[in-house]
Design a protein around this nucleic acid. Structure first.
Lengths: 213, 213
DNA sequence: TCCCGAAGCGAACACCTGTTCTAGAAATAA
DNA sequence: TTATTTCTAGAACAGGTGTTCGCTTCGGGA
């Protein structure tokens, strides 16, 4: 990116502020009056330069058709993840939306660094309710990042629904002959054994985030 | 938020897709053709309902003056945090640079959502080595977000250096008459008591991030 | 059946807005 | 200085765009 004039810097700054403030881009005349520019053509002139320099992107003949490119890189690492609901020891996980999760149906969204999801699809988050997951080193109020899968490899931490006990829990899953071993993440604790048709994999644990204070 | 019609749900979804796709909101007629709506007035009719229900916000007489409210929670940037080193049960925490942490001296930097740091200053990260923090529900390899403070309020989780034992640990700190109670985060475990001049607060725990797989 | 509210329809209006054009001023180079 | 480029002015055009206004259609209840 090349250097830009002072006026162009002001324009970029204003677009950024306008965008965070109102949620949609400013018009040419918004920029004009805010930056004390005498003519719309001057704004257009500078916007063209900013586009050629890669600071913004414009859609011709579209009102407010400005996209801030510098803004994308700032939020680039952040991936929006829907917080579907909460997981507790007494309820199954509310089934996450199949493919395209509906924006309107989700009550909350959180942003997580892209490193955590690593570009995976079908990632959602659950708020942990209750102390029943302490053996997985997960506390009340923690947020677990999940990936929706129906089967896991041996040793992976997964959300498991135990049909008979009507309990959801987070454990490392090992398939053994005639039984499934559910190993707590805390190595000091004893494993649990269950019949294969009693366990129902509901998702794979990708990460745990705990906000202490 | 009340329930909305199927058509209104489609509109919300389209606005969201359009916004991430192009960086600016769609016009009424964009919505109309994309959602197969016969008239612009119908779009306007439904947009008014969506606004009254709190899904969107509109600016009158402004082209593309639509803001998606459900999207706001995902906003907020990525804050770079230096990973200073690692915390283990046998070593004190390497003292974090006082104010401006030297970029060159830091081996690694991670980005965390701004919600986690909440704009606090002096935040750094430590990689946990060993299993000695399991009673704080922190596992080997976890990353703890710390804030550099020399004193904490009662009940706050902090990194504590025990001078006599030459051990670092993460516990909830309670100052009691003539002693300091160090309470594990795991309520099933017993507290530890130490003499006041034996404990040295090294930082406050803000958050814990565990990447499982 | 009739009634009534919710939802849809199409057209028209009036303003918003990107773009262009001509002309001039200001800065820069030769 | 002159020549050249960059930037600024103001105005006007053409199409985009939000909004409104009658009117119609639909879907239950009474």
């Amino acid at each position: 990116m090349k250097k830009i004039s002072d006026k162009q810097r002001r324009i970029i700054g204003f677009i950024d502020r306008f965008l965070t403030d109102r949620g949609y881009p400013p018009s040419v005349r918004d920029i004009q009056s805010a930056c004390n520019i005498s003519s719309t053509s001057v704004v257009d002139y500078n916007l063209k330069i900013l586009e050629s320099q890669g600071y913004i992107q414009r859609h011709a003949d579209v009102s407010r058709g400005i996209r801030l490119l510098t803004r994308n890189t700032a939020a680039g690492g952040l991936v929006p993840v829907p917080v579907i609901g909460q997981i507790a020891a007494g309820e199954p996980i509310p089934v996450p939306a199949p493919d395209t999760w509906d924006v309107a149906a989700v009550s909350e969204t959180m942003g997580v660094p892209g490193e955590l999801t690593r570009g995976r699809e079908g990632v959602y988050a659950l708020r942990v309710k209750g102390m029943s997951m302490v053996d997985a080193l997960i506390n009340d109020g923690d947020i677990v990042l999940m990936q929706h899968v129906s089967a896991v490899e041996n040793g992976e931490m997964a959300a498991v629904w135990l049909r008979a006990e009507k309990e959801a829990t987070l454990k490392k899953v090992y398939v053994e002959p005639n039984r499934v071993r559910l190993q707590p993440a805390n190595s000091q604790m004893q494993p649990l054994y269950a019949a294969p048709d009693n366990v129902e994999i509901q998702g794979r644990v990708i990460a745990v985030v705990r906000q202490v204070s």
